[in-house]
Write a protein that binds this DNA or RNA. Sequence first.
DNA 1: AATCTAGCTTTGTCGGACAAACCGATAAGA
DNA 2: TCTTATCGGTTTGTCCGACAAAGCTAGATT
Lengths: 254, 254
Amino acid sequence: MAATPLFRRIDVAPAYQKVADAIEREIINGRIKPGEPIGTEQQLVAQFGVNRSTVREGIRVLEEGGLIRRDSSRRLQACLPRYNKLATRLSRALILHEVTFRELFETSMTLEVASVEGAVERATDENIAELAGNLERSAAVVGNPAELAELDAEFHVLMAKASQNRVLQLAREPAAQLFFPTTEMIVGGVPEGGARLIEAHRHILDAIKQRDKEAGVLWTRRHLQDWRRGFEKIASLDRSVEHTYMEHAYAARQ
Amino acid sequence: MAATPLFRRIDVAPAYQKVADAIEREIINGRIKPGEPIGTEQQLVAQFGVNRSTVREGIRVLEEGGLIRRDSSRRLQACLPRYNKLATRLSRALILHEVTFRELFETSMTLEVASVEGAVERATDENIAELAGNLERSAAVVGNPAELAELDAEFHVLMAKASQNRVLQLAREPAAQLFFPTTEMIVGGVPEGGARLIEAHRHILDAIKQRDKEAGVLWTRRHLQDWRRGFEKIASLDRSVEHTYMEHAYAARQ
DNA sequence: AATCTAGCTTTGTCGGACAAACCGATAAGA
DNA sequence: TCTTATCGGTTTGTCCGACAAAGCTAGATT
């Protein structure tokens, strides 16, 4: 720490970055609310006094960050960042860091248990109805690993939603996005895999209905341990989430 | 699901998005490794056959996503997304969603406990040395809430690092970024707040050294409960993380 | 009144241009 | 010989102007 700095640190960020920062500030501190228009590119050009190309680069930054989007008619508006999109970025990062399935499993175990605890405490009737709907649809496709895996992922998303904790919802999503795509392989590869999965879901839902935290935690643990056993028949937990595997997960995104 | 779709879904993404996607694919599946150059804008223009403005918009997207950056001489290269940067995006999103401190607290409790459990199991000598160093520096500034708060945040980052679980490291970061900036107010507002914080850190570090999981969890819980009690003297847990509050957190980022 | 049509606006893309910063290599000086 | 200065050639950041396609608006038509 220099004593009494003589000069202020000079700011040499490129113009497009300053444009993005300026708009971001307005959104973050609430002067522009989600859903409200940002203005046309022409207006931004006039306000910032920079070229349209520069404005557009700034817009791309904000768009990728999820802070703004184009509505049906391509006009710019502020918006709430979608968990899904953010989580995709994170999943991507985890893949590049070559994390192992053990890390994913351990973290998911923690977060899913927290999730079910929250759901047991705070699930609304509507949450329970959604979970019940999911369970019903799952039972109908017990023999179809692909569809069952998708419904399994949805079940866990609904459970996190039922916990009424949005921080938890966001925190669990990246791991889940990487974790659940393997479900298909596992359900398909284990005899009675589909049936066991649905049984676990049923017990979890019952526990949430009964507000029975212990049962909820117990069956969530079992459910994930089942996944683990299935996975270990295929590969080591210490294998890293691979690049090639990612191509799957990516094809599914919109 | 339509039976035998006659036409393939046509792709109408703008060109800059396609450019970004194309480069992203190469990085994700490992054909371009972190640290390797992407090529100059001119080369990309030639390869993709689009205008430089278009290429630049694509680059902005990838840059914001953390997949590429400019090295010292501004040349483009692939890179591993920094947890810090990603977490900042997430924190931003949580603020816009107006999550409450209760949600933050609950999730942080879960993640910090998981973190200490991992650290007790797997901390290396180096991890322990880092934590000890942090503790020593903390003891030296026990009367200075601002510096102590910063060191507290660092302590928890080091703990997560010691857990050797990168997924956990990433998952806890967003909540922590919002959670810990309040530490300063709380430490400053509670008598003996600084001393209690350091005592908790000391016990946690001891537990990690002794590989005593119970003690580690116990003191981590206490540590966070202390924060909670301090916070509730100032405000309700059900208050949302506010826009104005964010301006603080933002000023600190680089 | 509902529909159609003809502008006007806005976005996405293109081409070219130029200053500033950076790189590499050569020339000049100790 | 080693350091310093100079000078082109690249590359990025920014600017200007232009145009086609798609949406919106409002007047014209049935």
